[in-house]
Write a protein that binds this DNA or RNA. Structure first.
Length: 857
RNA sequence: GCCCGAGUGGCGGAAUUGGUAGACGCAGCGGACUUAAAAUCCGUUGGCCGCAAGGCCGUGGGGGUUCAAGUCCCCCCUUGGGCACCA
């Protein structure tokens, strides 16, 4: 019995097999294979200084189980890992300590890699990537230049969140409740020069593409809402006494007769002309006040609408009625035309405003139930048109098209589509990001560049990209691909310029260059100007790219991580396609996943890629909470460190428990006791395996064991495919409980169990597989197939119900007919007690399952 | 405010298409082994009533459809997430 007492020494087992996998390159993905491919992708981590926390591996374990399972099923599997390593924390740390962000980043990456490796993932480490690697960001810059060339990048003054404490511009998502996410400092709105990507040009494609994706519905819905497509009409209103027209956008042209006032946004270009002399002061006070409000204030004060009458009137194109024009900040300049026709009877916001300022509220859509009493205003549902001249009596929804057509005929409107989606502010005033590979020259030099034969000329967008700086207009020229990567310069001081410019603006050597208009070559201005009139003075763009940039296309680089000639070899892209499975947090439902789709779709349109959509199947793992049910956080002190868990229970227990916790997509609390449970299960497997006197038989002779085994094969396989991994583990526990119960079982049975367990607890499975005489790696063994014929027993149990309540059961041969089951049910003594004095009114038989006798009386 | 998702024992959860609610695990209780402990194993464990046989109740609450509802429909409550004057 000595062998039975051998301990489950997970520490040495796990070390042994991790070394074996690495040495033998077991998980190398083959670029040149006849096998079908399977690409499982995790959202790659930002390697923070805090190291991995217990939430990170949740998704990784799930994708790893899938990857290992698919490999056993005969697929050529790619499961890579990399680092999204640009970002603010390393830069903040550099400001504080003077340590170069690359040093911090390297240390953090090393730590993350060590931690991830300790969990034993089936990762092809030869494909590791890092967004801060010049060999990587060269291609991030390359994609940007393509976008620039196609006119999808421009420069504009944009209001952005500015944090005076961090001296940095923050993205929307880095601002939480008016405070910076990092450090919780106050932030304010500031207009700053920004590089912007024209994602709005892709609004329609991004919307359409969603339909074919196997994504969570909620994520698709969020993206749809973010893109915010609406159909309606642009309508021109003549302005009384002015030779101008006021154009509005409306989704409800059918309510035109109910427009009792108009509103322009405080920033509207016609406001000044619209404002009559005696209203000038009042309007000015209002507009100034609105300008001082941040967007946040404007939304917060939403409950209380305000506005000022301009003194002007428009003429309603459908009936010539005079309609007063107001200015109010509940109308946004950034959406539609910045002006609306207000229909208080059928729009909540207009209703509120009209009530406050006692403007007429005129119903033009009748509620379908005709009960005027009941149909409160504002009413936005369907109905028949009233008070609408010749349109009266028509169905409002159907009338939209009719009115648009009539407006078009008269030349006072047209059908229009609008999107909520805004262009993407792509620049950050920071050091630790990809430099934007543009230079700025004078108009004169720009014209010269356009006239110069050479590569540069072909890289220019049709419309020049310009920027006003210190009163002069500068023109953007790209760096050609041969000049990439444009590397980050070494700096002494990481403090931002403080003016809203990046630290790069403080390095004259890097900033000021001689630039060759033909070749795009550059030299520091500190060197003498090379001869020839093709060399001109230029300054570099000092903005860097946002962290989203590197993550927009990393899924492609894994396919060909070391290619110096191309972003990805087309042959490899054709073979691998996109990830077959992509897993990551739901917090990226919109931004990362929308930006990545934008770039991917653009590269597809450029014929760089063969597929229009990057991520066909997407899954969001749920959050793992602390044991106290709260979100894990350092300040609460409920953070669980995977290193500690692995020390105590081993990586296999960690993996198994993260999956056993509950449904993958659910938010669920960690439990120290719970991990002991799965650890006990693994110990049991270990013990049953090494108890060699218990599995001497060749063939499985116990019918029950055989049945449970094949049930387990079936359920585990299905559960992995459906990512119901907690259920798969439960089923394996049921099988092990069975093996423990019987006196003996076959070697084959236990080896099959190990194969099923291998994706979940790979180290232990390898170890036991080897100890049973199997040749490593277990992952090369073909996945077991369930023999479904074993699952049907000759005898079946059928339950008897009376009025839906369980009253008995009986054993029957599996091909029993309905009549004999029903008579058996009626003969059951207990059933009879419940039928006494009653009349059977209906007999239900669900073949092989149950009888229900409905009785009355 | 609007749009989604969730609510099942003491706890995490299972029940894939309406068909035996509570699989599996944790915790609890009782027992075996042990000098003892740990480890392991066996039994038990939704609530109420009952000596028992057994009965009744039970999937957030209320109503409904059905022979049959955790599952479908309506209303409400709680909770998590998303959006937030987008005309």
């Amino acid at each position: 019995m000595a062998e039975n007492q051998k301990n489950y020494d997970f520490t040495s087992i796990e070390k042994k097999w991790q070394e074996f996998w690495e040495r033998e390159k077991i998980f190398r993905a083959d670029d040149d294979s006849d096998k079908p491919k399977y690409y499982a992708l995790d959202m790659f981590p930002y390697p923070s200084g805090a190291g991995l926390h217990i939430g990170h591996p949740e998704g990784y374990v799930a994708s790893d189980i899938l990857a290992r399972y698919k490999k056993a099923c005969g697929y050529n599997v790619l499961h890579p890992m990399g680092w999204d390593a640009f970002g603010l924390p390393a830069e903040q740390y550099a400001i504080k300590t003077g340590t170069h962000p690359s040093v911090t980043t390297k240390a953090n990456v090393d730590n993350f890699r060590r931690q991830i490796k300790s969990i034993g993932f089936a990762i092809d480490w030869d494909r590791e990537i890092n967004t801060t690697d010049p060999g990587y960001y060269q291609w991030t810059q390359w994609i940007f230049l393509k976008l620039f060339q196609r006119g999808l990048a421009y420069v504009d003054e944009k209001p952005v969140w500015w944090c005076p404490n961090l001296k940095a511009v923050l993205a929307n998502e880095e601002v939480v409740d008016g405070k910076s996410e990092v450090g919780n400092h106050p932030v304010e709105r500031r207009n700053l020069r920004q590089v912007v990507l024209r994602i709005t040009a892709y609004a329609e494609k991004l919307l359409e593409g969603l339909d074919e994706l196997d994504w969570p519905d909620s994520t698709k819905r969020q993206q749809k809402a973010w893109i915010g497509r609406s159909e309606g009409a642009q309508v021109q209103f003549e302005i009384a006494g002015l030779d101008e027209e006021l154009e509005v956008y409306t989704t409800r042209p059918d309510t035109l007769f109910g427009a009792t006032y108009m509103v322009v946004a405080p920033e509207h270009p016609l406001l000044n002309q619209l404002t009559v002399a005696e209203k000038k002061d009042e309007v000015k006070v209002y507009v100034d006040a609105a300008a001082k409000k941040s967007d946040l204030d404007r939304t917060d004060l939403a409950k209380d609408k305000s506005g000022v009458f301009t003194g002007s009137y428009c003429l309603n194109p459908v009936n010539g009625e005079k309609v007063p024009v107001w200015v109010a900040d509940y109308v946004l300049i950034s959406y539609g035309t910045g002006a609306i026709m207000a229909v208080p009877a059928h729009d909540e916001r207009d209703y509120e405003f009209a009530e406050k300022y006692q403007i007429e509220i005129r119903r033009v859509i009748a509620h379908p139930d005709r009960n005027e009493e009941k149909s409160k205003l504002p009413y936005s549902g369907p109905g028949l048109m009233v008070n609408s001249g010749k349109y009266n009596g028509m169905e409002a929804t159907a009338c939209k098209a009719k009115i648009i057509f009539d407006l078009e005929t008269k030349g006072s409107g047209r059908g229009a589509i609008n999107y909520k989606l805004r262009d993407w502010i792509f620049s950050r005033q920071r050091y630790w990001g990809e430099p934007i590979p543009l230079v700025w020259v004078s108009l004169e030099d720009f014209e010269k560049a356009k006239a110069t034969e050479g590569i540069l000329r072909n890289l220019l967008p049709t419309e020049p990209v310009t920027s006003d700086q210190d009163g002069t207009t500068l023109y953007a020229l790209p760096l050609p691909a041969a000049e990439l990567p444009l590397q980050l310069p070494k700096v002494e001081n990481y403090q931002p310029a403080g003016t809203g410019e990046s630290p790069l603006a403080t390095i004259p050597d890097w900033l000021e260059i001689w630039y060759n208009l033909q070749t795009g070559e550059s030299l520091p201005r500190t060197e003498p100007k090379p001869t020839g009139d093709r060399w001109v003075p230029a300054t570099r763009e000092t903005n860097t790219m946002p962290q989203w940039a590197g993550s927009c296309w990393y899924h492609l680089r894994y396919l060909d991580p070391k290619n110096g000639e191309r972003l990805v070899d087309p042959a490899k892209e054709t073979y691998w396609g996109g990830p077959d499975f992509y897993i990551g947090g739901a917090e990226h439902a919109v931004l990362h996943l929308l930006y990545a789709r934008f770039w991917h779709r653009f590269l597809y349109d450029e014929r760089v890629l063969a597929n229009p959509e990057p991520f066909k199947k997407l899954f969001h793992q749920g959050l793992i909470l602390g044991e106290d049910g709260n979100k894990m956080s350092k300040s609460v002190g409920n953070v669980v460190n995977p290193d500690v868990v692995i020390d105590a229970y081993g990586a296999d227990s960690l993996r198994l428990f993260e999956m056993f916790l509950g449904p993958l997509e659910a938010v669920k609390p960690w439990s120290e006791k719970g991990i002991e449970g799965v650890h006990r299960f693994l110990k049991k497997v270990h013990r049953e395996c090494l108890q060699t006197d218990k599995h001497l038989q060749d063939q499985e002779s116990n019918k029950e064991t055989l049945k449970v085994l094949h049930e387990t094969i079936l359920k585990v396989s299905e559960a992995i495919e459906d990512l119901r991994l907690n259920v798969a583990i439960s089923q394996m526990m049921i099988l092990v409980n069975q093996l423990q119960k019987v006196d003996s079982f076959s070697l084959d049975t236990i080896k099959t169990l190990l194969q099923l367990l291998a994706p979940f607890a790979p180290h232990l499975a390898e170890e036991l597989w080897e100890s049973l005489g199997g040749k490593p790696s277990i992952i090369f063994e073909p996945w077991p197939q369930a023999r479904k014929e074993l699952l049907v027993s000759d005898e079946i149990t059928i339950v008897f119900q009376v009025n839906g309540k369980l009253r008995g059961e009986g054993q029957f041969p599996k091909d029993v007919d309905k009549d004999s089951v029903i008579s058996a049910a009626k003969a059951d003594t207990k059933v009879q007690t419940f039928l006494e004095g009653k009349e059977i009114v209906k007999e239900i038989y669900v073949p092989g399952k149950l009888v229900n006798l409905a009785a009355k009386g």
